[in-house]
């Protein structure tokens, strides 16, 4: 009986080690589906891009830079020869509901859960001459990184809200005194 108990110990400990080792290994590989490059839908492209009836690419980039400054972004990088503008802004990510949830969990279970604290919103604007060389295509993409109150990255995501893109192009059209055409 004593022998059986001893083997049980060994088996339990061995299984635990194997699992722990696997957990250690898991972070060392790229998940096979993580790098799948999905072709974009026309819908996404239409949401992110507009065409303006001008061939003055520099004017479009300047207008976009000014608009993004209006929206609180700082310019991180630009390359006129490639029609590129990279911007970002850091803002609070504190959400009232999340904080209330944190308090509720702390009261019920005595455990403190992390809540979002800070976010960085990044965007890149890329301009290019249209295929018929008569207009400039503009495409903007937004993404954000969120950190919690423990300083850990809690969220990494592409921002896909159609209203955000619509609002951006309404303002860009006003700045350029030009009407935006859909692309795609």
């Amino acid at each position: 009986m004593a022998h059986l108990s001893f083997f049980k110990h060994i088996a339990s400990v061995g299984l635990f080690y194997a699992l722990a080792g696997l957990i250690g290994c898991a972070s060392d590989t790229v998940p096979p589906d993580a790098l799948l490059m999905k072709e974009p839908t026309t819908e996404i492209r239409q949401r992110q891009a507009r065409r303006y009836a001008t061939t003055d690419e520099k004017q479009v980039i300047i207008a976009a830079a000014q608009l993004l400054q209006d929206l609180g972004f700082n310019v991180d990088n630009s390359e006129k020869d490639l029609g590129l503008l990279v911007v970002s802004k850091d803002r609070s990510a504190v959400d009232g509901g999340q904080v209330a949830g944190q308090i509720a969990v702390a009261v019920l279970f005595g455990v403190r859960v992390a809540v979002d604290k800070q976010q960085k919103i990044r965007a890149s604007v890329v301009t290019s001459l249209s295929a018929d060389q008569k207009a400039i295509d503009v495409r903007v993409t937004f993404q954000r990184l969120v950190w919690d109150d423990r300083g850990q990255l809690s969220k990494l995501e592409r921002l896909d809200d159609p209203e955000m893109y619509q609002d951006f192009y309404i303002k860009l059209s006003k700045a350029l005194f030009l009407e935006a055409q859909e692309v795609g």
Partner: peptide
């Protein structure tokens, strides 16, 4: 330019570029 457009198509945000 086509590289930037392709990356945007694939869901990337451009960090920087140098012609």
């Amino acid at each position: 330019r086509v590289a930037m457009a392709t990356l945007q198509d694939l869901g990337f945000v451009i960090d920087n570029a140098d012609a």
